[in-house]
Each structure stands twice: as structure tokens, then as C-alpha cells.
Design a protein around this nucleic acid. Structure first.
Lengths: 347, 347
DNA sequence: TTTCAACACGAAAACGTTTGCGCGACCCTT
DNA sequence: AAGGGTCGCGCAAACGTTTTCGTGTTGAAA
């Protein structure tokens, strides 16, 4: 129950001043070797470690960065965190995590709470509600206070800051192009409602690929899921009604649910129907059949985001460059068992 | 680029003292209504928020708790975090997350770094390496400094602190008992090496169930996986060699891999072989067939852990009770498609 | 012996709060 | 008019650091 020892206590114990203790521990040449060694020995004995809070207050730096994400029980976000944590730790930064639970209010509250000195910068992905409301005042506020923000995955053009994204539109385009090249004609799309930015972009990529190849867009072949938790029934009905020969799903969950639905109505994957998903996570890997998917490397994404943030934090003082960058992470198609006759893709 | 405004700046601007500003904002009766309202208006205008770091230093409390877990790209740990975060936020606490990557050194470094004032308490699950070395000095150190620690899931008896666990032994016992009750004779076990505490306990439960039912323990029917990343081949060989009629796997990954392996050698699940897993995560739910599994509620576990920690933090000053508790979270069997003829369990 | 540098250390400010206490001004009572 | 009480506010300490600037002592040079 002994509290951690402080400079003051050491000073008192050794009958010197606080500054002498501090200088001794930092190997200042001002202090005689005698005193220095004595102090260092004593400090070591009592396992002295400087108090981080006091340091933060003095330096106006906390060496902590905050991550705000919609949810954590989600393989992709978990990998991003892992990537961030890794490079942050290498640079001596801690990572604090807040979940917005897809709620605008929680996002705002968390940001305001942390912005008051607790952290040096944010890495975030927007909640659905925030994207829907398109209200970003809390983020703008923070940026105006001089706190750097890096956005990833679910970003918005309405905010000027560093971003790291994948080219969702292109990734979807390439996936569809690949299906077309392999002779699939009736390619269905299972996507989210449009205010989820990544869903929208992937949908656009799908549409663009069809148009580019002069394939008619059949609205019946597009299913937009609102309630992600109850998607099994609509997906099954959708497949039964339209009998597509290929399905492109904008996430893992839709993909695996499509496969289950297809099986249920007697269709074999990939013999009768091919399925491509998005996000190479646990599900795609361990599903039977395993799922061909557009892979987005969360570790890399998180790592890049952290690098950008830390770079801005450390350079901030010297160069006051307001030049924001947007990094695009490469995606690639991971071919597994859920697609038939898929030739090597071009990406 | 304007920094956040401070009491001092407000004071200067309004030509009063810092204390007057502080007291006004805290609605102190010492201050006249005139001044009070004036200050409050000004503060609101400039969006004043007290600096958390300064408060932490003054109060010697950070209102932040740290979670240290082996990895985050793991559904169970992710759910635990989610549970912790939820109740922590309700009580106004932030959550800081560190990953040990199953490494003893990283665990030590993270704890030491955070123990210097950055946080108020720990919630942690031991890394494999730490369990293997059985070196807990870093944790003991922290506890001796009066910082509360709550351990969950992977715990150790060598440390006195609050804990929240599931009764792994009993959960495994019940699962096996259930298989036995349903007529399975040749029940295989796929487990981890013994120094992983939960693996060990689940193995013991398996053994106990067999012995209790006078079933001979056949060491050939027990597979201990060391390298979790390359378990597919050994598991497939194991099943091919022993042809069990049921498999109990101590985690999701082993379970799904067993199913894939069984399929590969021409066995149908559950017709030819039944599989029960442990941990009700994404994989079990979306695998085909979906996997019958012992469910451990990570959200509840995290929530309980956070409650215990916060309670200790808030009561610490008054009652100095050194009475540590160990909470046991109930498990139950989630029956899905990977088991045949399984009667309703008794738990 | 005086003067001056070098040396070794301490005092104090600063980071941004909160809070106990002191103090001046005013008003009311006798 | 003098005393006492209340009101409104400021001073200063405290949390634990780091760092600048001063200061006293010593030794050597003049």
C-alpha cells in the first residue's frame, strides 16, 4: 500500500533538493559524481519511475493516441487496432480505445472527453449514425484546437485531415470485372444502405463494372440490407427469387449468409452459384466452402494510420505544413473455394 | 491552431483571479451571481473544458483503467473489451488497451509504463509466455503499490486479487457428460499444451468426465496442439488415424479445423462424427455446419471484471478490505448443427 | 591577499487545476 | 461612532515534474 515514491521523498530522505535529485537521475553534468551515484542508487533501490501524469502536464504531451471505432467485435477493426498498437508502441505511444457503438452521441462524448488533454491525437472510423447525419462538428472542433486526426476506412470528404482508405470502388470494380471475364452473366449484389460510405463506394464499383462491360443493370439483382442482424431471410429469398450465377457481397457476413441461404434452397457453392465477399476475415477463412474475398489488410491500414499521426505529432512544432494526405491501401483478391473457374485476376 | 483555453486565460481576460474563475464554474456560493454568470458565459463562449491531465495530477486519479490482453484479433477478447468498455463508460472511466502479443516482456513493459500514474487499475488476462514462465513479479509489484488488479480468463492462483473466470473444468465435464449420455463412445479431445491454464482445466474436465463414467482414457484420443497456426495437418491426421465418433475441441479454431479435416477425409459432420467446440464466437456461428459449442459470455465477463475493479477503486479510501473475490461466469451449451442426437443438456 | 572562474547545488517558475483561508469592504446593530 | 458580521474575492499551497537562473563555496591565478 506504499504509494510510488516521488522526487520529493527522495530529496527529503537524502537531504538534498528536488532539483538535485531530478538532475542526478537525468545524468546532468551539474551534479557531482558522488551525489549523482548516491541518488541513482537510492532511486533504483526504491524503484523510482517518473510520474507520467506530471510529465504529461509539464510537456503538454501525453504520448497517447486515441482510437475511436464503431465496434470492436469485428475482425477488421480488431486487426486495424492491432496494426495501430504495434507501430504506436514502437514509438513509445500508448493507445486508448473508445467504441462509438455506431452511435453519433457516443462518438461525440468520447471525443470531447479525450480532447481535454488526455491524448495527443485521434485515429478514427466514423459511426454509421455520424455518416448518416453528416454532422462532423465534433471532429472539426478537435482539429481546430490543433489536435491531429487521422481517419480510416469510413471517412468523409467533408473533413480535411489525413486519411487512409482502400479504393473501395476500384476493388469492387475489379472483382466484378473478374467475374465477367470468367463468363458470369447474372451477377447479383448484396450491399448496405447508401449512407455507409464503403457500402456506397463498393456498390458504385459494381455498377461501373457492369456499365463498362455493357451489361444491363438489373435493380432486382441488387439487395440493400438495412438491418444487418436479420439479413438471413431477405438474402435467402433474394437468391431464390433471382437465381443469380454469381453474388458479390460487400462484406463477409453477407457473403457467408448468402452461401448458407443458397445451400438451403438446394444450390451448391460454387457449382451452381459463385460468391465473392469483401474483407478477408475469420469467417471467409473458416467457412465451408471458404470464401473468395477482396482482402483489405487491417494491420497495414492501422499501421499506416498510426505512422501518419505520429509523424504529424512529432513534426508539428517545426514545420507547420497543412498538407493533408490520403493513403490508399492496396487490395487483392484472395481466391478460395466459393468461386468457380475464376482465372487469375489482374490485381 | 488556438490551444484550448485555460482558467488562467479566462482570469486574465476577465480581470479576476484564477480561483474566482474556478469557483464560478463550480457554482461556488462564495462568488456573487454577477461574476459567476459573467464567467460562466465567457467560459461557455470559449468552450472551456478543464484539462484532464491537470485534474488527474491533482486528484491522483486518472479515471482510466487499462486492459492487458494477449491479443485482440480474437473474438472472445474483443467481446470482453466490449463488456469492460460499456460499464467503464457508464461510470465515467476511459479504457486503455495494451496487447501483450502473448509475450512476457511486452506484458511487463506495458504494465510498468502504465503503472506510473497513467491509470487507476488493471484488468488483464495472462499471456501464454507469462503462464509458462510463471513469473508474476510485475503484477505483484503493481498490486503492492496499491493499484487494484482484476484478472480474467487466464488467471493464476499465485496472485491474490479479484478474478473472474468460467468454470472451465466443469464446463468441459458437462459437455463430455452430455456426449456420453447421448451414446458416444469414442470421444476425442483436441486441446492445447498444458501451461495454458484454460486448456489445462478443460482437459481435466474431459478426463474427469470419462473417469466418472468409467470410460477408459485413451491417450491416443488426446491431441495437444502447440503451434496454433499450423494445426490443420495434425488435426486431420489425428482424426483419420483414430476415427472418433465425437470430438471435443477446447476452442473454436480447433473445432472448425476438425470439421474441415473430417470432411476432407470423407467424414460427414454430424452424421459420422460430432464436434463440440468451446467459445461461442463468429466461427461457430457461421461455419457450415454451424458448431455446437460451450458458450462463455465475454461481454458479461468483461462487465463483471470492470464492476469489480471500479468498486474497489471507489471504495478504496474508506474501507480497506483486503478480501478478494473470484466470480464464476455461467456457461451453457449452444446446440447447433455439428452434433447429432444431442439431448437437451442439464446445464 | 584579492579576484575570478569553476563547481555543486538550491530556489523558483511553469504546466492547469482545486480549495482552505485570509482580508478588505460594506452594512447593520448598539 | 465603534464594533461585529457577512459578502466577495484573491493568495497560496498542493499534485510531480523539468529547467533556468542564481548563489555560495572552493581553488587557483595574479
Amino acid at each position: 500500500m506504499k504509494r510510488k515514491i516521488t522526487l520529493k521523498q527522495i530529496a527529503k530522505e537524502l537531504d538534498v533538493s528536488i532539483s538535485t535529485v531530478s538532475k542526478s537521475l537525468r545524468d546532468s553534468p551539474e551534479i557531482s559524481e558522488d551525489t549523482r551515484l548516491k541518488v541513482q542508487a537510492f532511486a533504483k533501490l526504491y524503484n523510482y519511475k517518473p510520474n507520467n501524469i506530471a510529465l504529461s502536464l509539464k510537456n503538454r504531451k501525453t504520448k497517447t493516441i486515441a482510437i475511436i471505432i464503431p465496434e470492436i467485435v469485428h475482425h477488421f477493426f480488431a486487426t486495424v487496432i492491432s496494426g495501430i498498437e504495434q507501430v504506436a508502441n514502437e514509438s513509445g505511444y500508448n493507445v486508448i480505445i473508445c467504441l462509438s457503438d455506431e452511435s453519433f452521441d457516443k462518438e461525440v462524448i468520447n471525443m470531447e472527453m479525450l480532447a481535454n488533454g488526455s491524448i495527443d491525437g485521434f485515429i478514427m472510423s466514423l459511426s454509421k449514425e455520424t455518416q448518416n447525419k453528416a454532422d462532423f462538428h465534433h471532429i472539426i472542433e478537435v482539429i481546430n484546437q490543433g489536435m491531429p486526426v487521422v481517419m480510416f476506412d469510413r471517412v468523409t470528404n467533408d473533413i480535411l485531415c489525413d486519411k487512409v482508405i482502400i479504393d473501395d470502388n476500384r476493388a469492387a470494380f475489379d472483382a466484378i470485372q473478374n467475374l465477367i471475364d470468367n463468363g458470369f452473366k447474372k451477377i447479383a449484389l448484396i450491399t448496405t444502405v447508401d449512407y455507409v460510405s464503403v457500402g456506397k463506394l463498393r456498390t458504385e464499383g459494381y455498377l461501373r463494372a457492369l456499365r463498362t462491360n455493357d451489361v444491363n443493370v438489373d435493380e432486382n439483382l441488387i439487395l440493400r440490407i438495412e438491418d444487418i442482424d436479420n439479413c438471413a431471410v431477405p438474402i435467402e429469398k433474394f437468391i431464390a427469387a433471382n437465381k443469380p450465377d454469381a453474388v458479390f457481397a460487400v462484406n463477409e457476413l453477407f457473403a457467408v449468409t448468402a452461401i448458407k441461404g443458397a445451400k438451403k434452397i438446394g444450390l451448391n457453392v460454387p457449382e451452381d452459384i459463385s460468391v465473392i465477399g469483401f474483407t478477408d476475415g475469420i469467417i471467409s477463412k473458416y467457412s465451408s466452402p471458404s470464401i473468395t474475398t477482396v482482402s483489405q489488410d487491417g494491420i497495414e491500414m492501422g499501421g499506416k494510420a498510426a505512422k501518419m499521426l505520429i509523424q504529424r505529432l512529432e513534426s508539428e512544432d517545426e514545420e507547420e505544413e497543412e498538407h493533408y494526405r490520403t493513403e490508399v491501401i492496396e487490395t487483392h483478391l484472395v481466391e478460395r473455394e466459393s468461386t468457380r473457374a475464376l482465372k487469375r485476376g489482374s490485381f
